[in-house]
Design a protein around this nucleic acid. Sequence first.
DNA 1: AGCCAGGCCCAAC
DNA 2: GTTGGGCATGGC
Length: 287
Amino acid sequence: MSKLILDEVCDFDLKQTFECGQCFRWNKELDGSYTGIAYGKVINVSQRAKGMEIDNITPLDFESIWRNYFDLDTDYASIKNALSKNDEVIGRAIKHGSGIRILRQEFFETLISFIISANNNIPRIKGCIENLASDFGEKIGNYKGKMRYAFPKAEVIAELTPDDLSACRLGYRAKYIIEASRQYMALGDEKIRALTSGVTESDEVLAEVMKFSGVGPKVANCILLFSLNKRDSFPIDVWIKRVMAKLYGFDERDIAGMRQFASKTFGEYAGIAQQYLFYSMREERSE
DNA sequence: AGCCAGGCCCAAC
DNA sequence: GTTGGGCATGGC
C-alpha cells in the first residue's frame, strides 16, 4: 500500500462529493481528508491544489476500482455547461456544488443503504450502515487505529432474521433489507449483470429495482443514479420538493410535474442536476 | 419536547 | 390508480 498523487483532476471537491448525500461510508478526518470504504477496500483521500492524494491504495486498485468509482473519465465541465445553457436557475445551484461528482457505487450496497435511507436522516443512516458492516461485514484490516469492515454480502444478510439485526437499530426497515437481500440472491448473476452493465433501458431497470422490498420510486431512482449509471434518474425526496417549489414554483405535491420538468429541462443529466439542487438546498439550511 | 428525516407498505377507496 | 394512516429510531 502506498500513496498515489493525481494531478489535474478537475471538478472534484471532496466535501461536496462525499457530503451531498449520495454515499454513507466516507468520513472526514481531523486533517480534512476523507477516509472511505468501498469494494472491500479502505482508502484516504486528501484535496490538493489541482487534484487529489490517495493513501492506502495500490496502482492496480486505482485502475480497476477507483478510477471508475470516482467517475474520473467523465467531463463534468461540459455537463455543467450543457445544464446551465438552457436554464439559469440550475446555473446558480451549480455554483454551490460545482465540485460534485456522482460516484459509481456497488449495486447491493446501494440497494440496502437507500432502503435504510427511507424516512431517516443522514447521520442516523450512516450509523445504521456502520452497525451493519461491523456486525456482519468482513474485516478489511486496521487503518488509522480502527478496524474497518466491508459492507456485508447479500448471502449473509439473506440468512438473517429481524432479531439478528436488532442491534443495528434499523427499526421497521430490518425486514425490508432481509427480504431485499433474498430477492437479490434469487435474481442470479446473469440478471444482476444485465442491470449493472448499462445495456438495459432506464425505465426497465427502474421497474426491476422497484420490485425489491422497501424500494419505492424515490429509493429506486437513487439506486439508478448512484449505482446503475442512469444519470437521467431524478430522485424526488422532501428536499427536492422544497427546492423545486422554491426555485421553480412547483406545488410540493406535484411529483409528476417535477419529474416531467426535470426530464424536459435537464434531459440525460437530470440526476446530476438533481444533486446540484439537493446540495444547494441543504447548504442553505446549514447557514 | 416535539417535529422531522434522501418514503414505503398496505388497506380502502 | 390514487390516497392516507402507520411506522422504529434518534438527530436536532
